[in-house]
Structures are given as C-alpha cells and as structure tokens.
C-alpha cells in the first residue's frame, strides 16, 4: 500500500474526536518545555524515585504517624473537669485499663476493657474463620475459571461495596428481626425463634457479609497466579483432582488465605457498626467502648490509652501470626 493510501486509511480509522485528541496530545508532548521537563526527569530518575518515595513517606507521616503520636501522647495525659485534657504525665489511664479490677484466683480476670477486647478478638476470629470457609470456594472458582464472565463475576463480588455499610446492616436487621425472613422461614420448618437479631450470631453474620470480599479477592488473586502446569503435573503423577487440590493448589494459595484472613481479622476486630446495630446488650466491641469513652464521657486520654492498648495487642497478634505464616511472602510478591 502506498504511503498516501496508508495515511488516508489512518485518518479514516480515526473519528474526528480521536484525531483531535491525538493532535492535542502530540502537541502537548512535543512542546518544548514539556520535552525538556520529561528529559530532565529521565535524567534524574533517581530524583524521581526519591520524590515518589518521599511523597509516600510524607503521606504516612502526616496522616498516620502524626495522629498516632498525638494519640500516644494523649494516652499519658489526664482528663480534667468537663473533658479538659490536662497535660500531666501519668500512667493512670493504662493502670485503669490493664490493672484495675483484675482478680486472679477469684476467677474474674481482667476488667471491662479487657473483657470487651477479648470479646472483640473472639468475634474477629469467628468472622475470619467463617469468611474463610465461605470465601474460599468463590475465590478459587474465580481464580480457576476460564469463563468470559469472570470480570462480571468479580464485579458482583465488589458490588456490595456500592451500598453503604449502614444500609447493609439495616437490611440485616430486617432479615433477622422479629418478623424477618429468617424467623419466618424457620417458622415454616417448625422452629420457633425470636430471630437472631441482637445476638452474637447477628454480629458475626453481618460482619461476614460485609467482609467477605476482603477474603475472596486475595484468594482469587493467589489462586489465579497458580500456573495450570502445577495442577496438571500433579495429575500426571497420579493425583486425583481432590488430592491435587490438597497437595498443590491449597498450599500455593496460602498467601491469599493469609492476606485475606489478616484483612478480615483486623477489620472485624475493629468494627463499630455491626455490634452497635446488630449486637445485643452483651455484644459491645472495643471500637464501641473507645468511641463511647471519647464522645460520651469526653475522656480523650482514657480513650487514647484504650486505642493504644488495642493497637499493641493487634500488632502483637499479627507479628505472632507472621512468625507462623511468613507475611513477607504474602505481601512481598
């Protein structure tokens, strides 16, 4: 094809808008100052890297470390009358969180804060185990399927994120409440119940529904990365599909399982709305207590100390988990 024909074909391929955009971009990119800037940047790739890293660090410093440092400082200060913060260093807040009311032989170990923290960890654990059981199969399926609908299915996984959290929890109130679906269906089968609303079951159910995508997506991601060759080679060596899954796919998807579990656990333990809306009188969690101490009692120092203790406990747990699973592997790749 002659050059002229080629060009005619090119322009015929482009719509007017595309041609305009093309011209605009080539115009912009060829402008002298832009060219010079790009070249300068290329020459200073090191500088560029430093700027990028610097931005990240600055972001962390301003929005994470600074507030955290403030909370840490607050936790050692004291509440004055009317919620005034008195800048007097003392360990009183930690003392009341960790030491007050702790009996050892008289059975009652720990105080309200520690009990609620324990309860939060328990809910976090239950939620993590349940999401793992429910999330592995869809995650695995999405990772393995060749279906052209995979993107659509992935979209469906994240679709619930488009519905605000509070609305989803209220929906559960309707589903599990007195005259809700669950009670009605159980009634048909002859099981009389007052519904599960305002119980532990409701809290964990709500959390599982909300956090499931955080389990499915990492599992999907790590299963999708497993080369078909691994599974096929296992089969050629005599492994039944089930055996091949157990020996090969499952261990190779462990990074996804750990990543998902950690995400879900952290989010579940720190959840606020689920226990507040779906939980019963005994189902408070640590976020609720901190929030109440912060807002209602106006005791910022005590609330900060609670937050710090919570953070330390969570961090310790994850570090221990890391020892067993090896998180570098999870997040390293």
């Amino acid at each position: 094809m002659s050059e002229r024909h080629q060009r005619a074909a090119d322009s015929a391929d482009r719509t007017g808008f595309e041609r305009y955009r093309y011209r605009l971009w080539t115009g912009v990119l060829r402008a002298e100052p832009v060219l010079r800037a790009i070249q300068a940047l290329k020459r200073r790739e090191r500088l560029l890297t430093a700027v990028q890293a610097g931005l990240g660090i600055a972001w962390m410093a301003v929005f994470l470390l600074a507030p955290l440092a403030y909370i840490l400082a607050l936790s050692f200060w004291q509440r004055g009358a009317g919620g005034v913060v008195v800048q007097e260093f003392a360990l009183a807040n930690y003392q009341s969180i960790l030491l007050e009311d702790v009996q050892l032989l008289g059975w009652q170990i720990g105080n309200v804060y520690l009990l609620i923290l324990w309860q939060s960890l328990k809910f976090g654990f239950l939620t993590t185990v349940t999401t793992l059981l429910l999330g592995y199969v869809p995650g695995y399926f999405l990772g393995r399927t060749q279906s052209k609908y995979r993107s659509l299915l992935l979209l469906l996984v994240v679709l619930p994120f488009w519905v605000p959290l509070i609305i989803r929890y209220y929906a559960w109130i309707l589903v599990m409440g007195n005259e809700g679906m669950v009670t009605t269906i159980l009634g048909w089968v002859g099981v009389e119940s007052g519904g599960f609303l305002y119980t532990e079951v409701a809290v964990v159910t709500g959390l599982v529904q909300v956090l499931l995508p955080f389990m499915i997506l990492p599992i999907y991601n790590s299963v999708a990365k497993i080369d078909d060759e691994f599974v096929e080679s296992a089969k050629t060596m005599g492994a039944t599909p089930l055996r091949a899954f157990y020996e090969v796919t499952l261990p190779l998807s462990l990074p996804g399982i750990s990543a998902g579990s950690i995400l879900v656990f952290i989010l579940a333990v720190g959840s606020f709305m689920a226990p507040a809306l779906l939980g019963g009188p005994a189902n408070s969690m640590v976020a609720n207590l901190i929030s109440q101490t912060f807002g209602e009692s106006f005791d910022w120092p005590l609330a900060s100390a609670m937050a710090i203790v919570y953070l330390v406990v969570l961090f310790t747990l994850i570090t221990v988990f890391n020892r067993f699973v090896g998180l570098e592997e999870v997040f390293g790749e």
């Binding site: 009652q108 309200v112 009990l115």
Partner: peptide, 19 residues
Amino acid sequence: KEEHQDDWNSTFEKIKLGQ
C-alpha cells in the same frame, strides 16, 4: 455526673457483659 460517671460507665459495661 462528672464525679461518678467513670464508675457508672464501667459498672454498666460489666452488667452488660454479665460480669
């Protein structure tokens, strides 16, 4: 209220937890 609410709060939490 100011004087006693710490005690009220933590006792109420204990009651809620059945403790």
